[in-house]
Design a binder for these strands. Sequence first.
DNA 1: AAATATAACGCAACTTAGTTGCATTATGAA
DNA 2: TTCATAATGCAACTAAGTTGCGTTATATTT
Lengths: 125, 125
Amino acid sequence: MGITRQTKQVKTLLNIFDNNEKAISVVDLIKLLEAQMNKTTVYRILDKLMDDGVVHSFVGKGGLKWYAKCQDCSCETHNDVHPHFQCKTCGEVECLSVSFTLPPINGYMVESASLFIVGVCSNCL
Amino acid sequence: MGITRQTKQVKTLLNIFDNNEKAISVVDLIKLLEAQMNKTTVYRILDKLMDDGVVHSFVGKGGLKWYAKCQDCSCETHNDVHPHFQCKTCGEVECLSVSFTLPPINGYMVESASLFIVGVCSNCL
DNA sequence: AAATATAACGCAACTTAGTTGCATTATGAA
DNA sequence: TTCATAATGCAACTAAGTTGCGTTATATTT
Ligand SMILES: [Mn+2]
Ligand SMILES: [Mn+2]
Ligand SMILES: [Zn+2]
Ligand SMILES: [Zn+2]
């Protein structure tokens, strides 16, 4: 079940994702919002925003959780199957708007796949 | 720097990877070996086996670290760039001996990429 | 404009993965 | 057998994420 009440904290988080193309880690979110809300609240709101198809999450380089705004998702359909890229230089993480084809693996049923790419972004090159 | 002394603990871990095609998580390794060695030792030996090109690691579904034997790696060259697969049914994680091509991303320098696939393995289908 | 039901929040305490410092042990070379 | 030191065990710590519960605030009803 997703969000039912538009609390001050929910609005704050929605605002962050609306004005931010890049992905952001939970750790950074908690640090950024420590004056405004509890870390438990951050985790809980993120969970609900996931349910609502507002954001999607993925596991980054060090095993940390990252979140980014969904493009064309809703409660019912999560279409955000795209690679994620982390820049070694500036540290920023972004969703790549490209589709990728999985290698052929006979006899396996594929349910989901995540591709994480590390390198140097166009700004830092 | 890698391993310089063939301790009992090192032999135990080498033996596990030699007799095991599948990948294994650190958590499972620690549980499996709790009677034989300390968890700190497990982490430290795995680090060194990485340096020596004996094993490689990757981040699994939940952000946990997994390890598997390298095929053709050494201290100098780590060639193990392949996807990893986790079966939802049996939970086993394996290295896929297939190569995959990255999607074209103009203006970015790619350094490494990891592809993690979740589904049902051939045994469980 | 109250009253009210309850979703959501804050807080503290907890769990778990992984790390660090240091005293002790055991390996391999001299 | 001696000896330097790599490696281990242990305890304490850090950091990410979770849980339970009492309190607060939102949105609906009266
Ligand atoms: Mn994304
Ligand atoms: Mn592998
Ligand atoms: Zn960059
Ligand atoms: Zn299976």
